[in-house]
Write a protein that binds this DNA or RNA. Sequence first.
DNA 1: TACACTCCTGTACCGCCGGTAAAGTTTTCC
DNA 2: GGAAAACTTTACCGGCGGTACAGGAGTGTA
Lengths: 206, 206
Amino acid sequence: MRKGEETRAKILDAAEAAMLAKGFGATSIDELIVETGITKSGFFYHFRDKNELAKALLERYIENDERIYDEIFGRAHELADDPLQAFLIGLKLLSELLSDLPNGHPGCLVATMCTQERAFDREIQEMNRQAALMWRRRFGAMFREIMQVYRPREPLDADQLADMVSTVLEGGIVLSKALKEPKSLPDQLLVFRSFVRLLFQPAVQP
Amino acid sequence: MRKGEETRAKILDAAEAAMLAKGFGATSIDELIVETGITKSGFFYHFRDKNELAKALLERYIENDERIYDEIFGRAHELADDPLQAFLIGLKLLSELLSDLPNGHPGCLVATMCTQERAFDREIQEMNRQAALMWRRRFGAMFREIMQVYRPREPLDADQLADMVSTVLEGGIVLSKALKEPKSLPDQLLVFRSFVRLLFQPAVQP
DNA sequence: TACACTCCTGTACCGCCGGTAAAGTTTTCC
DNA sequence: GGAAAACTTTACCGGCGGTACAGGAGTGTA
């Protein structure tokens, strides 16, 4: 039982790296079993087919993603009581974490599965949707907290602002990859951070 | 000659739709020739291999993309002399254009080829990079114009702001697809528009 | 009118890949 | 020690990307 999960994890690790680099279709089961040191039948013992693999992959990815956000914004809330300050600190911590990735962000599985949506079944598309909705709920709650203390200078919706976090992250990943500039992603996040600060901080001087 | 270009265009049309929907790997040449009403040999007469097809596809896509931006921001500059107003009008026009797409944005080829980068050769990766750099130059020039008239309230770099346009577009496309909410993309663009207005418009009241 | 050139079709073939089937073997855990 | 889990082995299938090459139809041109 323990051994099985280990092998499964090894397959998922290899698959995740390959899928993020080459996409779903270009990642062959054969290459995964070579990298994992397993036979083809061994692979199909763990996953009924490639779609099942994709599902397991996405599930694990989203869980990990949530864990990271929990940690970062949890830490941010320890460092500041004010909801705006906590959020700004969270964005900074996230930007620093992304800066520290040596080869840049490896890519977002949600995004790769969105840009290849018709290659996956409805269940996966629904998982993707739920992931995006969870991001909206998470950051939306933060913006609503902030709005109870600060009045935004522009009448923007908390959910739309929350979506902007996801947008900047997903867009920043794409741009970083296109430009081959890993710094772009953390930089874009800091630009967004400036916007948020500008939106909620009271106007300075007369 | 005329006939050949026509067939070529038909292949590219079918390929673009399929690639944006399913990705590169999941799009088979066989399905393209069925849709185009051509034989397999006929396909390989036009494109040496699948990578050649991808290259032609990307080239055409980027040209069209540039044309659209030329039109929209050209029109915006006709409607306002002030560079900030022109840019804000341009974003609004772009948002409206994206709102009018009945099934939402079909996806960005640059993004799909970035999220599957290792499936393509270096030439394509370089084309992608050049496309992102052109966006940066285009919007960077606009922000520099704006900055000659308005002082930003936060010390942000024109190129980073330019990249933010690409980020919001690419990220908005991903989010729209994930959420299955076509409105998200134009909405996110309008949120960004509010940020730009906030950044450059002088503070109201003492 | 003939030729050259573009734009294909037809046929036959190759190896990789996703997937199936089923029987057998080793490893792990209780 | 025995059952269940975790595989291996072998054999096979059809689809797909790609190659090779011969042939043919339509078109502009000398």
